[in-house]
């Protein structure tokens, strides 16, 4: 069974709820190596996405994702705004006006999101950024789809890989973003962006079940 616009909106609402729930944790992670604004910024952005969806859900999954993108770009303020905004925007563009998303579309959309984040932030795997969570998530999603996984299975595989990827940033020296100013002092901390990416994918996977 595919994901229609209402389902995609529900998935985003679950993402927003997860960000709100983990706001303090994200703030703490970012306080250690950044400027402690990631939890606050992302929560403000998703709260705005949710109120926009409450006012009316657009007709297609792509349009829902585009609404999320433009809202996050305007409301987040920090680097997460352009990065998540670009991720959702590229996915929305890739998915076009399809009325339902199947497992293949989810994997394709995630790949487009990753390409967008890499182009925008110019980070690679190993720089201790959200790319460390998103890149393995995309690969896992593509593998799951190739193995015949449905939407829920593809998202679940992505979430598992993203969590592993976020954990892998702990021993890394940050090379992009605010944490890179700390150099080796960023070692020993999970990257807040990678962590929020993993949290979002986990909540998407659970909401899509």
């Amino acid at each position: 069974m595919g994901c229609d616009a209402e389902r995609v909106a529900a998935v985003l609402r679950a993402g927003g709820a997860s960000v709100a729930e983990h706001k303090a944790e994200l703030i703490e992670l970012d306080r250690a190596i950044g400027d402690a604004d990631h939890g606050e910024n992302l929560d403000r952005g998703f709260a705005a996405v949710l109120s926009s969806l409450d006012a009316g859900v657009p007709e297609t999954p792509g349009a829902v994702l585009k609404t999320a993108a433009t809202t996050l770009i305007s409301k987040v303020g920090g680097a997460a705004g352009p990065l998540y905004g670009t991720a959702f925007l590229r996915a929305a563009t890739k998915l076009g006006d399809a009325s339902e998303l199947d497992a293949a579309a989810i994997a394709t959309g995630l790949r487009a999101a990753l390409d967008g984040v890499v182009a925008r932030g110019k980070a690679e795997v190993g720089d201790a950024t959200m790319v460390d969570a998103l890149a393995p998530a995309v690969e896992a999603a593509e593998r799951s789809h190739a193995d015949g996984g449905d939407v829920a299975a593809v998202l679940s595989a992505a979430a598992d890989a993203a969590k592993e990827g976020a954990d892998s940033t702990v021993p890394l020296t940050a090379r992009k973003g605010r944490a890179s100013y700390l150099g080796e002092r960023s070692v020993g901390h999970a990257d807040p962006g990678a962590t929020s990416t993993a949290l979002l994918l986990r909540s998407f996977a659970e909401a899509a079940r």
Binding site: P82, R120, R178
Partner: peptide, 11 residues
């Protein structure tokens, strides 16, 4: 000025 300002400007 800094990091994310570049991304916002490019967008």
């Amino acid at each position: 000025d800094l990091g994310s300002a570049q991304m916002t400007a490019e967008m």
